Amino acid sequence: MNALQFRFNILFLVGCFALVSLFLGGCVNSRQLAYFQTATSAQDTLALGDRYVPPIKRGDVLSIQVSSLSAEASAIFNPYSSISVGDGNTVRGTNTSLPQTSGYLVGDSGTVALPLIGQVKLEGLSNGRAAEVIRTKLRTYLKEPTVSVRNQNFRVSVLGEVTRPSLFTIPNEQLTLPEALGLAGDLTIYGRRDNVLIIREEGNKRTFARIDLTNRNAFQSPFYYLHPNDVVYVEPGKARIASTDRLYQISPIVLGILSIVAIILTRPR
């Protein structure tokens, strides 16, 4: 065996050792990756929970758009129309800061201040019901008014073992847990699908709930429909921890072998 072949064999063995060690430390059972299992037949039916309709709360920022037969008269009630707040259909995500929005702030009294109308109580109403309340009051000033109300700070955070962890702003105010995970690019192969954590803050309490996405009973969970400001956290599984530990374990060994290889390669022959 010549010197060149000897050196090549050493490098090849080092590479194989590192790859095998990482592979053995990161194996994942395929059943741990499949969503919504336990089907009893090729087709079955599962009842869903009530669809969540978010009520307006204090501190919400509302986009209120008014139109009527007179565009000029309607413009009085649309002071934020010249400020771009998104097209209403795009889900926004950011990793750095909260999106800046402009609209009507729901104050501590649960009201918003509208031009000419004054304070209107909207707290506790759905967006559809709030639009009806405002439309009724606008009939004094406009002919055939129509009103659209949107919540601009319906946000959900998705963190942990997902492809794109981020804070998402939801324009249609209806979001399920699978949809939120889809926005984040789905779970990585290392994410635990059987123990997804939902953190929900309502009133003066914070609730922690865990959902098993490998079981189709997840569709019946009260946390299947997400609420504003929910936090979704996907924790790493044993495979991620094992592969990370394995990397730290073999790194000194690999470095040591590479040092020996470097000495051999640099020795005059």
Rank of each mutant, 00 (worst) to 15 (best):
V120L: 09
T169N: 07
N95K: 09
F168K: 10
K57N: 11
G107P: 14
P79K: 02
Y141K: 03
S67G: 05
L159K: 03
E144Q: 14
G93Y: 08
E144C: 00
G93P: 05
Q100I: 14
T94D: 15
S148Y: 01
G128P: 00
R135N: 10
P79E: 10
N127M: 15
S81R: 06
P145G: 00
S74C: 08
A47W: 08
G88K: 13
L167K: 11
S97F: 14
N172H: 05
V53R: 04
S157T: 15
Q119L: 13
S67D: 06
Y80C: 08
K121G: 00
Q174L: 02
T96L: 15
E132V: 09
L159V: 00
Q100K: 13
L114T: 06
I56D: 00
K143A: 10
G160A: 12
T101K: 15
D50K: 12
A75G: 05
G86M: 14
V61R: 11
R150F: 01
G59I: 07
S126H: 00
E123H: 07
R129L: 09
L125V: 04
L48Q: 14
Q152A: 15
L105C: 04
D108K: 13
P99V: 12
T169F: 04
P115E: 04
P165K: 03
F168V: 07
V149K: 00
T163P: 03
N78A: 03
S97T: 14
V91C: 13
L116F: 11
P145M: 01
S126T: 06
S74H: 07
N172K: 04
I56V: 02
V66S: 01
E123M: 05
L98H: 10
R164F: 15
R92W: 15
Y141A: 03
P99G: 05
L62I: 09
G49N: 11
Y104S: 03
I117K: 09
A131Q: 07
S81F: 08
S97M: 13
P145H: 02
R135D: 02
T111R: 12
G107D: 15
V120P: 10
G88A: 13
P99R: 14
E123Y: 10
L116G: 02
N95L: 15
Q152W: 01
K137C: 08
E173H: 03
L48A: 09
A130D: 03
Q152Y: 05
V162Q: 00
R58N: 12
G103F: 04
S84C: 13
L69F: 10
L116I: 13
V120S: 09
